[in-house]
């Protein structure tokens, strides 16, 4: 099962004038894989993700996400992926339940399905009693866990997580990763960016972008061997030059 590719990228490029924000990157991500997408600020990660989730048109190259072409089928991609970031997660002015209903509706789930799923979800997160509270009143860690569950509501094949744990306390950060492991275990592919290098170690494979190119891509273990260091933090420091 793990040999099925759910993302295939070949020489994908995005140019803004003469500047190549993403410069001919190529990689594959397998079903059920936890794929870490790392790089310094300004290395081109966000631009690359925008192309993969169908909201930015590439300048050249190929990319298929869940069997759909990023040029011709961006809408099909959006329906088949989940997305969550630190900045955009949930609506603060809606309650927990309203957020679930809203996002379920957006993804075209029927009321019946939403009702069943939200019941399970609330029990699993231990948020049953606070389902009528405004999301804005919840601690950040709870919001992020809820937001991840909401991103999985329509059972996407891939979920993109853009710095999901920034600023979250250490216990919640780890609970969050347990949720990630669980989703991956059930076959959901996880595409994640982070600035916590210990989290890079949790990934099956990690790619590191430097100035628009993928400069390294392997398992954390192999990367550490390749660079003759003992932690992913050192791999990152050796590789990523912060050119601005």
């Amino acid at each position: 099962m793990k040999n099925e590719n759910v993302i295939e990228v070949e020489n994908l490029t995005k140019a803004f004038g003469a500047f190549k924000a993403v410069n001919a990157i190529s990689f594959e991500v397998k079903k059920g894989e936890i794929f870490g997408f790392l790089g310094a600020n300004g290395a081109g990660k966000t631009t690359a993700i925008k192309m993969l989730i169908g909201i930015s048109h590439p300048s050249s190259g190929k990319a298929k996400v869940v069997d759909y072409d990023v040029y011709t089928q961006p809408e099909a991609i959006k329906r088949n992926i989940g997305y969550m970031s630190q900045r955009f997660a949930l609506y603060d002015d809606l309650t927990v339940q309203e957020n679930i209903n809203f996002f379920g509706g957006i993804y075209g789930l029927s009321r019946k399905v939403i009702r069943e799923k939200s019941k399970n979800l609330l029990v699993e997160l231990g948020m049953h009693e606070i389902s009528s509270k405004l999301v804005g009143s919840l601690p950040l860690g709870w919001k992020q866990k809820l937001s991840f569950s909401v991103a999985l509501l329509h059972e996407p094949k891939i979920v993109f997580l853009d710095e999901p744990t920034g600023g979250v306390d250490p216990i919640t950060r780890r609970q969050f990763w347990e949720m990630i492991y669980k989703a991956a275990d059930q076959g959901t592919t996880i595409f994640v960016t982070t600035h916590y290098m210990d989290e890079a170690e949790y990934c099956d494979r990690v790619s590191i972008m430097v100035e628009g190119k993928i400069e390294a891509l392997d398992t954390p273990k192999n990367l550490k061997q390749q660079f003759k260091v003992t932690s992913m933090n050192e791999v990152f420091l050796k590789l990523a030059r912060n050119i601005e």
Binding site: G39, A40, N41, A43, Q86, E163, G166, G167, H195, M197, N233, F236, L237, A240, R241, N242
Partner: peptide, 14 residues
Amino acid sequence: DEPTTGVDPVSRKE
């Protein structure tokens, strides 16, 4: 106040 939040490890070190 949180000068390094959201900043990558290389820039944080600097």
